[in-house]
Design a protein around this nucleic acid. Sequence first.
DNA 1: GCGGGGATGTATCGCGGCGATATATCCCCA
DNA 2: TGGGGATATATCGCCGCGATACATCCCCGC
Lengths: 211, 211
Amino acid sequence: MAKSERPQSRRAALLEFAILGVLHDGALHGYELRKRLTTALGIFRALSYGSLYPALRSLVESGHISETPEPTASGKRPRITYQLTAEGKEHFQDLVAASGPDAWDDDDFDVRLAFFSRTEREVRLRILEGRRSRLEERLARVREVSARNRERMDAYTLALQQHGEERAEREVRWLEELIRAERRAALDPGPAAYDLDVLPPTRTTPPQNKE
Amino acid sequence: MAKSERPQSRRAALLEFAILGVLHDGALHGYELRKRLTTALGIFRALSYGSLYPALRSLVESGHISETPEPTASGKRPRITYQLTAEGKEHFQDLVAASGPDAWDDDDFDVRLAFFSRTEREVRLRILEGRRSRLEERLARVREVSARNRERMDAYTLALQQHGEERAEREVRWLEELIRAERRAALDPGPAAYDLDVLPPTRTTPPQNKE
DNA sequence: GCGGGGATGTATCGCGGCGATATATCCCCA
DNA sequence: TGGGGATATATCGCCGCGATACATCCCCGC
């Protein structure tokens, strides 16, 4: 197996994880890969090529992906498609199986969730619950600050504060719904019909079609 | 007036704006200033000294703030307090009066909102409305993507997508409440009892005290 | 059929923000 | 008396991001 080249910063490690995940179902070239990471998955809102291409190069060097120049007809403009190697697949499985203590940070969590359908149920539950308690800690801290100097705050700061709290509460409730669904699916029909379609409609607002 | 030294990157300009705003009601030293910017205001979640001190230096050089070493009793450990200069106050007034086309970006908006009580009503309304349409654009884009490949998405991506949509919808509603309140206060009791206590309770969930 | 504009596509560079780290003082408590 | 934690100032290196460059393809107007 190729040497693994510590993924330097936490940010870069996350990006590499996301790349492996996206590449896991199909080879892509950089441009399309970037679109998947930004538009489709919603993760990495504005990913720069100045981050993407170095990350791809690093992954090639560490042997997790390989690049193949694709000759388009005659002999000009070679597009480069990237695909997972066997080591890359293996490495992704390792990463997706481990729920490190970072898996519930904001960015990390979104990426982990994006690959939940390739994650074991046990790990999914651990991540969801970790995320929930992380969120509850944060909420408690915010509430405490808010209570301590409520009278010193002007109306706008107060409004922002309350909106923040409400958003956090909603996310906790959303997480609890996901957790319940996981638990239900884990016990309900025995080990059959795995992984998909286990979620109830998560929409908590009535099906209003506004505007 | 001192030369103004273009604030380089957008991020740095935002930080300088926030510093001026916080310093506007009282001189502070760096450590406390950082706490205000992170804990209290919620903006700049994790502001590094590697950003703060250079920004302070830049503001001193441009003449917007001044630093005074504070001798603590004998002759050791001089704490440095920073305060606005006349130019700094003036500059902050200019910044708070202008609603540039960036005022409705995520980070920018939070900072602008934090200083709303020192912002004229007209500008407040423009910023709130700008933010709302920005959010609606984003929501429309997300919805469109979501509709285009709903069947290709697994249950988890779908759940994440829906949660994101719902959050955006809520924020739009929250903004509309703020806008209504501004409009009401602008017409209602004539020009008296300005600026504060104009907001109704923004909490939209019933006052449940959970857990 | 020609040329402009926009999407597709690969690639690099400089600037500056951030995390880590160093250093120092003060104060509380064991 | 010394360890631990809050307070406080400061810097450094790494690397992520925005800008930019360059090239191809294709559609549309005229």
